[in-house]
Simulated scan of single mutants.
Amino acid sequence: MKLTEDIKPVTCMKTRAAELLREVKRSRRPVVITQHGDAQAVVLDVATYEALRDASLLLQLTSQGEADVQAGRTTPQSEVFASARRRLKREK
């Protein structure tokens, strides 16, 4: 993070929103918006936001899977594949 470029006061967002959005999209770096010197929001380009959201969802799924394994909520692979084969045969 470059402090001179990546932290902006809310007045910058009010007066130069289009320019701010162009820069965020070009650089793909988040910009912290401050109000009265305190950080209040972060502006991200859509691609970065989606990547962060996807990574967060993947971590949640991994955590849920690990909890299931520890709690013994598992099914052997052979049973899962056999069930899938039966379903596929019924759908034909």
Rank of each mutant, 00 (worst) to 15 (best):
V46E: 04
A47W: 02
V69H: 06
Q64E: 09
A82V: 03
A84L: 09
E50H: 14
S56E: 06
E23F: 15
E19A: 15
K89M: 09
Q40R: 15
T62P: 01
T75F: 02
T74S: 05
R28Q: 15
L21M: 09
V46S: 05
V31I: 15
K92Y: 01
Q77Y: 10
M13H: 03
A18W: 10
R29G: 05
A39M: 06
S56H: 08
I33S: 00
A84I: 13
K89N: 08
E5N: 08
H36V: 03
K14L: 11
H36E: 10
L44V: 10
E5H: 11
C12L: 08
P76Q: 07
L3D: 09
A17P: 00
A18E: 13
Q40W: 11
R16Q: 06
R16I: 01
S78L: 10
Q64P: 01
D54G: 06
A67E: 15
A67H: 14
K2C: 09
A17W: 03
V32M: 08
S78T: 09
L3W: 12
A17F: 07
P9W: 04
V10L: 04
Q60L: 15
V80P: 01
V10H: 01
T75M: 02
M13V: 12
V42N: 00
E50Q: 15
G37Q: 02
A84Q: 03
F81G: 02
L61H: 04
V24P: 09
P9D: 10
K92W: 02
M1W: 10
T11G: 06
A18K: 14
L44T: 05
G37T: 03
G37R: 01
A47V: 06
R22H: 14
R28V: 14
Q60E: 11
S56K: 12
Q60V: 15
V31H: 10
V32G: 01
D54N: 12
E66D: 10
E79Y: 14
G72S: 11
A47P: 03
S27V: 03
Q35H: 10
V42G: 00
G72T: 13
S63K: 12
A55F: 05
L57F: 02
A84D: 02
V69P: 05
Y49C: 06
T34D: 01
I7M: 08
L57M: 05
I33E: 00
T48M: 06
D54Y: 06
V24Q: 08
T75V: 12
A51Y: 07
R28D: 13
T48V: 13
T4P: 00
R29A: 07
D68W: 02
P76K: 13
D54E: 09
V46K: 08
C12W: 10
L44D: 01
L61M: 05
G37N: 01
D68V: 00
S83C: 04
Q64N: 07
D38A: 06
A84V: 11
T34Q: 04
D6F: 14
P9G: 04
A17S: 04
L88A: 03
L44E: 04
T74D: 02
S78N: 07
K2M: 12
Q70E: 14
S78Q: 07
A41D: 02
L88W: 02
V10Q: 00
T62W: 05
D6A: 13
E66G: 09
F81H: 08
P76M: 11
S56M: 08
Q64L: 13
R28E: 14
A82Y: 04
I33Q: 00
S56T: 07
L21E: 01
K92P: 00
E5D: 11
T48Y: 03
R73H: 08
Y49P: 00
